[in-house]
């Protein structure tokens, strides 16, 4: 087996007395598409936020290319530029146009020259079909369009891993389709992705590995073919039956 590019070891997170994550271990190989499913409150989003360092874990360690991700701002910044994140609520900068959204971080973090940042932004906006909207402000776009821009914005950093935190949960069914299509295209580029989602069909068809989380534990971690057809844990079965029956 190849060496993991991201390794999470014994990660726990509590908010006060409430334990949200309990000793999570997770290794991520290059090119993997990991979907994390589970009911609300099972800790999926918190896990993703810990990986991106938006939350500080209570205990446990995260290694990126065998190097521990420490709580040093400069190192965290550098790590984040490699491990990007797409949010449920898009989190676009509302004072900037689509183009400015996609150029800000490449200019200010990677210090790319203007032309290069522009070319990159256009290339990724084309990839998600949003290039004609470069002059629009986020408020002028639909939810699906916003999410596509947010994905392009993250791609501009050329991340090695992209984290998706319920990217389609705030969208109506039609828009869900357009965003999932964009994500499906990304799979073909070889980008490593960790996707927290409630879209079971997407997890089943696209992921290389599906993780079921419940009450802060990783209950099951298996290829989707196995997890969806022959789940080992009764809790997984119970959860899936509710989704797949409907």
């Amino acid at each position: 087996m190849e060496k993991a590019i991201l390794s999470i070891q014994g990660l726990s997170k509590s908010f006060g007395n409430h334990e949200v994550l309990r000793k999570i271990d997770l290794d991520v190989q290059k090119g993997e598409i990991i979907c994390i499913v589970g009911s609300s409150g099972s800790g999926k989003s918190t896990l993703l936020r810990c990986i991106n360092r938006l939350e500080r874990q209570t205990s446990g360690k995260i290694f990126y290319h065998d190097k521990e991700v420490r709580d040093i701002q400069r190192e965290v910044n550098e790590y984040r530029s490699k491990v990007g994140m797409v949010f449920q609520s898009f989190n676009l900068f509302s004072n900037m146009t689509v183009l400015e959204n996609c150029m800000l971080c490449t200019r200010k973090v990677l210090h790319l020259p203007k032309e290069e940042a522009f070319d990159r932004a256009i290339a990724h906006l084309k990839e998600v079909g949003m290039a004609p909207f470069i002059n629009a402000k986020p408020a002028q776009l639909s939810g699906g369009q916003k999410q596509r821009v947010a994905i392009a914005r993250s791609l501009c950093m050329n991340p090695e891993i992209l984290l998706f935190d319920e990217p389609t949960s705030a969208l109506d069914p039609e828009m869900v389709g357009e965003v999932l299509a964009v994500m499906q295209n990304l799979v073909e580029t070889g980008l490593t992705m960790i996707v927290v989602t409630h879209e079971m069909a997407f997890a089943r068809d696209v992921s290389t590995r599906t993780i079921f989380m419940d009450r802060g534990f990783v209950v099951e971690d298996a290829p989707p073919s196995q997890l969806f057809t022959n789940p080992k844990s009764p809790r997984t079965r119970e959860f899936l039956s509710r989704y797949l029956a409907g």
């Binding site: 701002q73 550098e78 900068f93 200010k108």
Partner: peptide, 21 residues
């Protein structure tokens, strides 16, 4: 707070996030 997180999540420092976003 989401807009800040959006900037931070891509490696912007807290100060740059404050200044530009």
């Amino acid at each position: 707070i989401g807009q800040r997180e959006g900037a931070l999540s891509m490696g912007m420092s807290p100060m740059k996030t404050m200044v530009y976003v």
